[in-house]
């Protein structure tokens, strides 16, 4: 392992300053389940960990009917899926956070960390996308918000500038008649990395799909928001035909690579399969 310095930030401003001064070798430390491994294996040159877990804003989970849900970027997965409100109103967040890593990892790993690691196969991001999450960022120039689908720019890369870090994720109040579901395909049952994953949110009003969002992951350099898949569903009742059309749109949007985790054909096919399954299961949740 490299000799890595550790400092605990007491405030957002202090964290931002430490990160900027630390330059390329400084990383935010939330759960550390990605960055500690990267430091040990020397896949990233890290010389400073800036621990943000003492900053209340990065750890809290709060909901109110007007503003919606706010999840601190460093809040660990097990607290997210253990939260009553999240379980009741945002079950797709439970889908994601209970799959990231494994049970032991979920004791530390965070949604913010999963987002900032910016893996194309991240198990948190498709859910964030279909839930219309916004990313609250703090930096030397103050605060800004970014729509989550615009956050990742390339594998392992995102819009954060020097000194910036993610403070929290915000989610609008769930609309009436809505349901969302996240699924991933892995060759085993748990503790694996997605070959392909997908999430869907649908809103059903008067028997018709009034709104939808479909996101697919691990099939492109970044997790995708597939507008064409939503368009295939909206304005009519859900049917086998519209679901098949949405799946076809996902397959067309996917541009997967061939690697040890999956082949192009397999991933493209799975993008369609998981789109279909998340649509059906999101609709079931909407009806419940």
């Amino acid at each position: 392992m490299q000799a890595v310095k550790y400092v605990r930030a007491a405030s957002v401003d202090e964290a931002s300053r430490l990160l900027q001064e630390g330059g390329e070798g400084a990383r935010v430390l939330a759960g550390g389940t990605d960055v500690i491994v990267q430091a040990r294996e020397r896949t990233r040159e890290i010389d400073l960990f800036v621990d943000i877990k003492q900053i209340a804003e990065t750890m809290s989970i709060a909901y109110d009917a007007a503003d919606g849900l706010s999840i601190g970027a460093a809040a660990p997965c097990h607290e997210i899926y253990g939260n009553e409100t999240v379980r009741e109103l945002y079950p797709s967040l439970v889908d994601s956070t209970s799959l990231i890593g494994g049970t032991a990892i979920q004791g530390r790993a965070s949604l913010g960390g999963n987002l900032c690691n910016s893996s194309p196969a991240a198990d948190g991001i498709p859910t964030l996308i279909v839930l219309e999450a916004t990313v609250e960022i703090a930096g030397p120039n103050g605060r800004r918000s970014v729509a989550v689908e615009d956050f990742c720019t390339a594998p392992g890369r995102n819009v954060l500038e020097s000194g910036e870090f993610v403070v929290s994720l915000k989610f609008p109040t769930p609309a009436a008649g809505s349901g969302a579901r996240f699924l991933r395909f892995i060759p085993r049952n748990e503790m694996d990395i997605a070959v392909t994953n997908a999430a869907t949110q649908v809103r059903i009003e008067n028997g018709s799909v009034s709104w939808a969002r479909v996101s697919i992951g691990a099939v492109a350099p970044i997790p995708l928001l597939v507008a064409d898949a939503a368009a295939a569903l909206v304005g009519q009742p859900l049917s086998d035909e519209t679901i098949a059309a949405a799946a076809a749109a996902s397959r067309a949007a996917a541009s997967p690579i061939d690697d040890m985790r999956g082949s192009i054909r397999q991933r493209r096919h799975l993008a369609g399969v998981l789109t279909e399954r998340t649509i059906r299961q999101a609709a079931e949740r909407a009806a419940a």
Binding site: P187, R188, N189, E190, M191, D192, I193, D259, M260
Partner: peptide, 23 residues
């Protein structure tokens, strides 16, 4: 999983997939 140059790509227990008790 080797590439053409003989590089073993999956030299970790994430990608060398042994069954766990959950499987």
């Amino acid at each position: 999983y080797y590439d053409e140059s003989g590089d073993l790509k999956n030299a970790s227990l994430l990608d060398y997939r042994m069954p766990t008790a959950l499987d």
